[in-house]
Write a protein that binds this DNA or RNA. Structure first.
Length: 426
RNA sequence: GCGGGCGUCGCCAAGUGGUUAAGGCAGCGGCUUGUGGCGCCGCUAUUCGGGGGUUCGAAUCCCCUCGCUCGCCCCA
């Protein structure tokens, strides 16, 4: 073993594992397409400033998890830790006002410099969806339903949806004033982490897992009591709609999430079978972000799904590879050329065709076809080449020796008939 | 960033101080040079994540380091 290894927290995805990835991605992308959501691709690398301003300086992601370095021009660059800030930047930069309503998705690697764990890597992958310019609660409902449906389409069970509302900016300021007062009188009773958050990010204290802090917080003022009439209505409409759509949810008043930009709706979907990294999907509304980043005032809502965690949850049935339809056994100079040509013709039928390039003995090539569980084989050797024909037959154990058919290379009609009867059925 | 566990071939592993490092799967070759699935035979770690030390002698003991893993923190 040499010392050239992958970086900590990164992994190689090998062909066998990628079968599951591709199957999962296929199902996800089909669902997005049906919902008329369009793809956007932004750079993996951005100016560090983007994330500091977009995500918030006081957040854990920015303060201790960013993959940041100086490039050759001494610019501070960061590998994106999430997608929303980049999407917002791209839209502002490319003129959001010419197209103020957009439903977008993106998929790709994200980077956070953390200690790796099950379901957590330094390079991981997210599918993100952002509804830009949509203000109505109905967009909140649609986006939660979409996240839910994607997970359901993959056959994932035991999912929990948690929701909360963070109100709008004035609700929050209103609340924070009261909350800070309360915090000052109760500061000593809180755990150290929470004490530190008082100045940086007081809302996050609600997210504390410290048992004592949790208990004390039960008597703290609650954000939900400071919501304006409008915010309150919006939230109850959301809950009512989820009930009508039969999407089960749990209200979690402590759910505030780690990024600064959220307003109103915040939600998370977790699964018990993921161990301590239970969150598979997280999202929420961010009505102020785009304006705050220098764009026009644009409401928006989105979510991100962690693909590694999604893969862990998705069923085993998605791991099965597609079997070879036709394995072409061939030997001899003329045969090789004929076989190459035939393989191209066959692939036009959307068949999975593998051409043996080994030049090994027929016996070996048969063994290979068997190992691949090829549905059928074609044999082309010197005899066949001389007769300008090839032999084709099904390769399952039942049809040994029988039903072999010799077809002329010119005879496309007979070939197509055979394919339709044997491989293209259903 | 902090705490616990672990690290023997591509994979699963036996071995816990005595020297040739079991076995299984996979892979490769053969029995069987143009016809597979079964079976049988053979090959595949000068080396036990890496470095240093203790010892006559280490995969086995000690130190450091790297990585994995679980928990905390946080998130996807």
């Amino acid at each position: 073993m040499n010392n050239l290894k992958n970086l900590r927290g990164t992994v190689d995805l090998l062909p066998d594992q990628l079968i599951k990835w591709q199957n999962v991605e296929k199902i996800v992308l089909e669902q997005l397409k049906r919902s008329s959501i369009k793809e956007i691709r932004t750079p993996i690398l951005e100016m560090t400033e983007l994330f500091i301003r977009g995500i918030g300086e006081g957040t854990d992601v920015v303060s201790k998890e960013m993959y940041t370095f100086l490039d050759r021009g001494e610019r501070s660059c960061t590998l994106r830790p999430e997608g929303t800030a980049s999407v917002a930047r791209a839209l502002i930069q490319n003129g959001i006002s010419s197209n103020p309503l957009q439903k977008l998705w993106y998929m790709g690697p994200m980077f956070r410099y953390e200690r790796p764990q099950a379901g957590r890597q330094r390079q991981f992958h997210q599918l993100g969806v952002e509804f830009i310019g949509y203000e109505s609660v109905r967009s909140d409902v649609e986006i939660i339903a979409l996240a839910w449906d994607i997970l359901k389409k993959l056959g994932i069970k035991e999912l929990n949806l948690e929701i909360n509302t963070l109100g709008d900016l004035s609700d929050r300021l209103n609340f924070q004033e009261n909350f800070l007062k309360w915090l000052k009188t109760n500061k000593k009773a809180l755990d150290l982490d929470s004490q530190n958050r008082i100045d940086k990010n007081p809302l996050r204290i609600f997210d504390s897992k410290n048992i004592q802090t949790k208990k004390i917080l039960e008597n703290a003022p609650r954000l939900i009591d400071f919501l304006s009439e409008k915010s309150r209505k919006r939230y109850s409409y959301l809950k009512k709609q989820l009930e009508i759509l039969k999407i089960p949810y749990l209200e979690n008043l402590n759910l505030v999430r780690g990024l600064d930009y959220y307003t109103h709706t915040a939600f998370e979907i977790t699964s018990g079978s993921l161990g301590s990294q239970a969150t598979v999907c997280g999202g929420g509304r961010y009505d102020d972000l785009i304006k705050q980043m220098g764009g026009p005032s644009t409401p928006a809502i989105g979510f991100a799904i962690g693909l590694e965690r999604l893969i862990l949850l998705a069923g085993k049935e998605l791991e099965a590879p597609r079997n070879t339809d036709i394995y072409i056994i061939n030997q001899g100079l003329i045969s090789e050329t004929l076989a190459m040509d035939l393989s191209r013709k066959l692939r036009n039928y959307d068949l999975l065709v593998e051409l043996d390039l080994s030049g090994a003995s027929f016996s070996k090539q048969f063994k290979k076809a068997n190992k691949l569980k090829a549905k059928s084989i074609i044999v082309i050797g010197d005899d066949e080449a001389a007769n300008k024909e090839f032999i084709i037959r099904l390769f399952d154990k039942a049809s040994t020796e029988n039903k072999e058919l010799a077809i002329s290379f010119e005879d496309d009609i007979t070939l197509e008939k055979w394919l339709i009867n044997n491989l293209l059925v259903k």
